[in-house]
Amino acid sequence: MAASMHGTQTAANALLSIRKLRKSFGAIEVLKGIDLDIGRNQVVGFIGASGSGKSTLLRCINFLEEPTAGEIRLEGELIGFSDRGGKHTKLSSGEISRQRRQMAMVFQQFNLWPHKTALENVMEGPLIVQKAPKAEVEERAVGLLKKVGLEDRLHSYPSRLSGGQQQRVAIARALALQPKVMLFDEPTSALDPELVGDVLRVISQLAEEGMSMVIVTHEMHFAHQICDTVVFLDQGVIADIGPAEHIFGGTTNKRTLEFLSRYLERNG
């Protein structure tokens, strides 16, 4: 797959660059200084124990959480703050909304809007946020739902869709924004095992098409298959990082090996 073909990109042309990122909730520091560059067309996977800060990191990237310190840049643009005059001041909520449009998030619990059909869920962003013409938006939305295999469920409300179908609508909704990067937070963790495959296939296809993605996952086999880089997060720091072959093969990092063997025990 796309692995290592692109090599490591330097900070200057990275799509996302994260520097000295820290995040505390009250007295508890959850992220303790994260440094990472993510290149264009790359798929970066985050693995790690529950509570290690994976979701928090993802949520900081699109500013659903405000970092306590450090910075995140998308194509060089500082997220959430203005750095004019060397001082960081928080951007207006309108500006933050504009930045968020460039990143799309797919949640563990799908979070579809229950009062809108599959099609309306997908159209909402482009229509309301990007204010694109309706006919055009609809055509694109139908195309996206086709792409995720739901052309026959356009007018279904979320309550009538299975978890796997809901998650695929959520992926279409994210794609509709034509984002620069897709952020996935355990996209298959809430699904019945037999529904996981459909969702992973859609994500794999996106990887093949060169979509830049950050994926938090507990599906090690999947991470091994599609990720260019895998990051092992342990208690708020990057404990191990490298190409998928490194994490799932070559690593000698004790914590990584421990984590993976515990995972294997549980999942056979």
Partner: peptide
């Protein structure tokens, strides 16, 4: 559900858009 509001934020909706389109109707 908080997640439905976060989903709206994540597509770049503003607070007023969210009130009008998502939280208001729900």
């Amino acid at each position: 559900e908080k997640g439905q509001i976060e989903a709206a934020f994540s597509v770049g909706m503003t607070r007023t858009q969210i009130l009008r389109r998502i939280t208001g109707p729900l």
